[in-house]
Write a protein that binds this DNA or RNA. Structure first.
Lengths: 252, 252
DNA sequence: TGTCAATATAAATACGATTTATTTTCTTAT
DNA sequence: ATAAGAAAATAAATCGTATTTATATTGACA
């Protein structure tokens, strides 16, 4: 077992032990190459023997990484025919690894607009259901996230972002709807995307706190329609920021 | 490599070659045991050596199945500590295998109501966006599905169901929103659930055709708000049927 | 159309390496 | 002397490699 950094034939680097497991590093590379189109939809991957040579990993590590890809809906394997890349419609885009790769590659405009459209649709509905369904424990989770945002105010962008994400995640969990909950990873992606596109944290902190507080209060008071409207306002600002940032991007 | 049916120590059967691969059969069993709670959230799985004995499979097959479970967000492995089952909030419930298991086990009431709530939220929005965004090819896909429903009318429930699912799937694809598209597997689950709970295909065919046609027309005519309203009506009927079926279920 | 060979994945087995959680021991403070 | 915290050692479990055999499937040929 190697202990130093490994370069494959094609110069692709599999991280050494200090950083990432062989399998994880390989998986990330494969996902990157698929998402970027380097390994094109519909195409057939080289066979296992070639891939083990190319990436300089054992057959087992390769096959385990491939199983993860199958679970992502990205590939399908058949004896004799080989392994093909499936169409994008099949992929589990909500998987955190896939979303991370999309973000690092930088999606096209429809990536971001799809995300904000979905947010505008789902999060108000989740807030309304949270106002109806949230348990006391879930409520205090939301409140804690809000307090963390207050604490982080103007001190720490990273802490602010984490608390912001916690707030939104706690609400979608409190909705009690398992389908909405699947969307949680997309919220994280949206917040990261916003940060990257605008080069700053979403919204001015004071205005943001006000809007977050309105959502929290409506949920606490068990007023679904007020919660819905408050969340629509909150996401509306996020939408405007993304739209502006994308417009600026276009002018470059 | 065995050629006959295999019984594990605990009587669990791994399908023979004629039916399912070792890995797939094992994976299905593991997912079933996790979803059913037999392998409880937060608990630690037996170690690899014990699991290979229990299921009577090789280490390779087990490890490949485990990677799929990791991708489903169901387990996490750590050296020395072992492999733990993660909380339900982590699971990729939208994976077709997971949904199939949920359906075969028969979810509780909130499973179905979450599904119909999400449908009521997402599909009208998708129809509206399809009315704006659909390409000619996507339009003809939707139309073809509708024609297939017409052809299947009163002849073939299985064909009708397939066409119904195609119709809804085609619309969500035509929305052009990659987030909405992730919910396609949930729509399939919803339609299957409806069939199972009501013991018949959703809706009377004539009424259903009328409502589907209204959706198709609105999309064709590029009228988003009409498409939205038509889809709301269609899903509203599906909701009423599920609600009735669940109420009947309660009286048993 | 049927048969067969070739291709590629699927599966099993054996062995060793590495990580990391848990336990034990040691040190320091009261 | 005892308790608490830190450091070191141990052990448990996963991770990774290598090799061989089995099986499924496709394409070529008669």
């Amino acid at each position: 077992m190697r202990t130093e950094r490994t370069l494959t034939e094609s110069g692709e680097e599999i991280a050494g032990r200090g950083k990432r497991s062989v399998r994880e590093a390989l998986l990330t590379q494969l996902v990157e190459q698929i998402v970027s189109g380097e390994l094109a939809e519909g195409s057939t991957l080289p066979n296992e023997a070639d891939l083990t040579d190319r990436f300089n990993v054992s057959r087992t590590s390769l096959r385990e990484a491939m199983q993860y890809l199958v679970a992502l809906g990205m590939t399908r394997s058949r004896t004799r025919a080989g392994t093909i890349i499936l169409p994008r419609e099949n992929w589990n885009y909500l998987d955190p690894l896939v979303l991370d790769v999309m973000l690092s590659i930088g999606g096209d405009e429809t990536f971001y607009t799809s995300l904000i459209d979905a947010r505008q649709l789902l999060e108000p509905a989740a807030a309304a259901q949270a106002a109806t369904n949230a348990t006391a424990r879930q409520l205090s989770r939301i409140a804690q996230a809000y307090e963390d945002m207050v604490d982080a105010n103007s001190r720490d962008n990273e802490e602010w972002s984490r608390a912001d994400l916690d707030f939104h995640t706690a609400i979608i969990n409190a909705s009690g709807n398992w389908v909405y909950r699947q969307f949680a990873s997309a919220i994280r992606a949206a917040l990261l995307a916003s940060f990257r596109l605008t080069n700053r944290a979403s919204q001015s902190h004071e205005q943001a706190l006000e809007k977050h507080h309105a959502v929290l209060d409506a949920i606490r008071m068990r007023e679904p329609q007020v919660a819905r409207a408050a969340m629509e306002t909150l996401i509306g600002v996020a939408r405007a920021e993304i739209t502006d940032a994308l417009r600026l991007d276009k002018c470059k």
